[in-house]
């Protein structure tokens, strides 16, 4: 017969062991990643061989104008965001993510002599700007305040992470020549065309308000999904 004290002791020991193993696993994952970054020699874009490379340079918009962050409308080359709501019950209060998203648009990386395009889909990105602010509406009424307020104003939390044009970046990944990659925008258009062949499936997937047609926001969601799908196949 196992006493309750001994049982508690056993549970605590198992939890401590699991925590220690998890910490050890995270340590090895981070060590491996840091060593990979440190041990991969940087290359210049103009003479880089195709394959896994490390390049560094300044971020720039791939097109004529930079993208706009969805919550703050700040100019950037990459963004991701999260909108969370504080939900309270009798015992505790907890943030629940209501909406989130990430940019799938390509951006340029420019070194001293040349440039390449960077596909952010499935990339692990360390942003140069991270803003967290609060409000009372499901969508923020303006950009984040320049300084952190002393108290939280509202039950909605907005988190935005950005890479801005001109930021110095170090990028690691598979480098492909333009001729091999083809036109990514054309690939997105082709993917959308493919989806449009089956209107029912397209509506079932993106017609959120079920009015039988895709409005501007729904079409934008379809376009982003197509860009993500085509990049996953080509990059």
């Amino acid at each position: 017969m196992v006493g309750p004290q001994l049982l508690h002791y056993g549970i605590a020991a198992v939890m401590a062991a699991a925590g220690a193993l998890l910490a050890l696993y995270n340590f090895f994952v981070r060590l491996r990643r840091d060593r990979l970054v440190a041990d991969t020699p940087p290359v210049r874009i103009r003479s880089a061989a195709q394959g896994y490379v490390k390049v560094s340079g300044r971020a720039a918009a791939a097109g004529a104008s930079p993208a706009r962050a969805p919550l703050s409308a700040r100019p950037c080359v990459w963004w991701d965001y999260e909108i969370a709501r504080l939900e309270r019950d009798r015992q505790r209060s907890q943030w629940h993510t209501i909406e989130s998203g990430a940019s799938v648009e390509l951006f340029a990386l420019i070194d001293a002599e040349a440039q390449c395009l960077v596909g952010p889909v499935r990339a692990e990105i360390t942003p140069t700007t991270r803003s967290v602010w609060y409000g009372t509406e499901p969508r923020p009424l303006g950009p984040p305040p320049s300084s952190n307020p002393l108290w939280r104003a509202g039950d909605w939390r907005y988190t935005e992470r950005l890479l801005s044009a001109g930021d110095h970046l170090c990028v690691m990944g598979e480098l492909r020549s333009h001729s091999e990659l083809g036109d990514v925008n054309a690939a997105t258009a082709a993917k959308l065309h493919e989806w449009k062949q089956d209107q029912q499936a397209l509506l079932a997937r993106f017609d959120v308000n079920h009015d039988g047609k895709l409005d501007a926001a729904e079409w934008e969601a379809a376009r982003l999904a197509a860009a993500r799908a085509s990049q996953s196949q080509t990059l």
Partner: peptide
Amino acid sequence: LLVLLFLIVALVGYLIGVYNGLVRVRAA
């Protein structure tokens, strides 16, 4: 015994990581 086992696992994992790292830089 558990602590000892944990340390052994950590050491073996670390050595495997070092070996793989050396293989990677040699391949580079």
